[in-house]
């Protein structure tokens, strides 16, 4: 039942974005988020949207997958855009009682919708093209400077790695324990919310007990393999910024400049 949940939704491939350094991808994603919110008029928003579409097309991931990622959040998009329609100030185009629709409201709704969709597409692009391990690895390396604030960067990354490793194992185990309790006549399907939560106790307790046992055994195994924290550790995979990454950074910077210029030279709509 839970067996086939793919974590992080990584889809292996050989496209340009797949080959980029994960650190660069994360930084560019952040730049793009800023870009999306910096687009104050239709021209700059148009440029941003066009570039997001371009990225989707070169990402070597079926467009269908991107549309699927919208599915979860479509309700939120609809609600925010409808609310925005009614929030504008100025002369009403149509009015029902206290509700009025203004031109500004419609503009707002368009901006919000396009921004959210771009945001989701561009972040999905990162998770689709980057394996979870590369992602944690990149986060660890990007956060390294935070060490001076006594943030345990290595430990956090190690925990993320182990969590990624054990989520499928624990899901499988949940399945097994559920079957075992059902075989003892546990009723997990019928009844109201509270009854259902209560019925989960025989599943959750063994699951926790087993997770702690696994944690203990894993700790022993890690110590046997000379684990002593992050100090003095090397990594097999060396992340290297290559020409492709530099090119992508340049293109993004160009976009950033372009959007800022558009904001200055074309009148802001909102």
């Amino acid at each position: 039942m839970t067996r086939d949940i793919a974590l992080g939704q990584f889809i292996p491939g050989k496209g340009i974005i797949h080959r980029m350094d994960a650190r660069v991808k994360i930084l560019l994603l952040i730049t793009y988020i800023v870009l999306i919110f910096c687009a104050f008029n239709f021209v700059s928003l148009g440029i941003v949207t066009a570039s997001v579409i371009a990225i989707i097309l070169i990402s070597d991931i079926p467009v269908k997958m991107y549309l699927k990622s919208l599915k979860v959040i479509i309700v939120i998009i609809l609600i925010t855009s409808i609310l925005n329609i009614f929030y504008g100030s100025g002369d009403p185009l149509v009015q029902f009682g206290i509700f009025k629709i203004t031109l500004e409201g419609i503009y707002r709704a368009i901006f919000v919708t396009v921004r959210i969709i771009c945001l989701i597409f561009i972040s999905s692009c990162l998770t689709f093209t980057t394996s979870p391990t590369d992602l944690t690895d990149a986060i660890e390396r990007l956060m390294k400077p935070l060490k001076i604030f006594h943030i345990k960067v290595h430990e956090i990354a190690m925990m993320m790695t182990i969590a990624l490793r054990f989520v499928p194992t624990l899901l499988e185990e949940t399945d097994k324990i559920m079957s075992a309790q059902k075989a003892r006549g546990a009723d997990m399907e019928s009844g109201g919310m509270i009854k259902k939560i209560k019925a989960m106790t025989p599943v959750l307790i063994p699951l926790f007990v087993s997770a702690f046992r696994r944690a203990y055994e894993l700790a022993v195994a890690m110590e046997c393999r000379c684990y002593q924290g992050g100090d003095g550790r090397t990594r097999m995979k060396v992340l290297k910024i290559n020409k492709l990454d530099v090119a992508c950074i340049l293109v993004t910077v160009l976009f950033l400049v372009g959007v800022i210029l558009c904001n200055i030279f074309f009148a802001a709509k909102i």
Partner: peptide
């Protein structure tokens, strides 16, 4: 179907991992 499970009892592999009470 739950009634069937009382008639056909099933002990899974490593059943000790289902103890909870």
């Amino acid at each position: 179907i739950r009634k069937i499970r009382f008639k056909v009892g099933m002990v899974f592999q490593y059943p000790e991992y289902q103890l909870f009470d």
